[in-house]
Amino acid sequence: MQFSISSSPHQSGQQSVTRVMGLVLLALVPGTLAMFWYFGWGPIINLGIATATAVAAEAAVLHLRGRAIGVTLIDLSAVVTAWLLALALPPLLPWWQTAMGSVFAIVVVKQLFGGIGHNPFNPAMAGYVLLLVSFPVTMTRWLPPDVVSGSALSLADSLHIIFSGTPPLGQTWDAISSATPLDQMRTELSQNRMIGEIRQSPLWGDFGGRGWEWIGNWYLLGGLFLIWRRVIGWRIPASMLAGLVLIAGLFWAIDPDTHPFPAFHLFSGGAILGAFFIATDPVSASTTPRGQLIYGALIGLLVFVIRTWGGYPDAVAFAVLLMNMAAPTIDHYTQPRIFGQRGRGDA
């Protein structure tokens, strides 16, 4: 009797790339709903545009590269990239800018490096940074959280703004848009105002930006879910947030008048989203246990440095991209001690 043969192990677990990516999407749902709650239809429309263009772009490139399209699209990695990008974008960004960021992320940052698993940079963040440096005006034009202004834009209004690029009749940008809390903090600090005064603004909540702090909490929930399901490790998020809190706490302790307290840094921008969903992108992050701690901590540090002294109000994207570049070097110098090797430090 003849049998088929294969290499051991002859059994395998239930994991698959599709399942991993699916769990990431599931974990993003609470934060996404919170975005919808505070910023209205904009984020949802962005999500649609980004997903559609990302998937179309991935399919087109795979076709050009002569690869099977179905098996790759089914891994959902393009959808994850699109979601992360869309959640980082301002709610009313003109549609073509969203589409451009998404296509850039998939085509240039991901597929031109060889597709999933081969990209040295986080595609979503690279797409975000491209848009931020190309379109600084639209990319910093946010909405006030709805709980503050109380006037949600309707679905029709949102669609109109996103697809025409102009505010609805009878309204001006100034009336409907607002800076982000981080942006405002930056501007006012540069005008030599004290933290205590700045915090009187209606944009502030209990411990971070109003609305933002709760979106952060919902992302946190999703992130903890991913750690529980072992989709991501605890090292990168923990070290990144710890790094950010430590350095922010240090400066706040020295001079609380010109440096916001650490919780503000955690809950006012993309720190939580970045820590659990972006810095943990395994392809572009460090892979060794000690390396991940270093990688995360340095991202946290860079976020603070760029927010405080850099040219942009939020810094997660830049910090992640910079550390993406350092990841191979970190890996090289942080090889764990293997079984039976002594005296090379503990992992």
Partner: peptide, 15 residues
């Protein structure tokens, strides 16, 4: 010698 594992995936020629 063990053969080089046959790649059954679609993105065969990577790397």
């Amino acid at each position: 010698r063990w053969p080089f594992p046959a790649r059954t995936g679609s993105e065969g020629a990577h790397g």
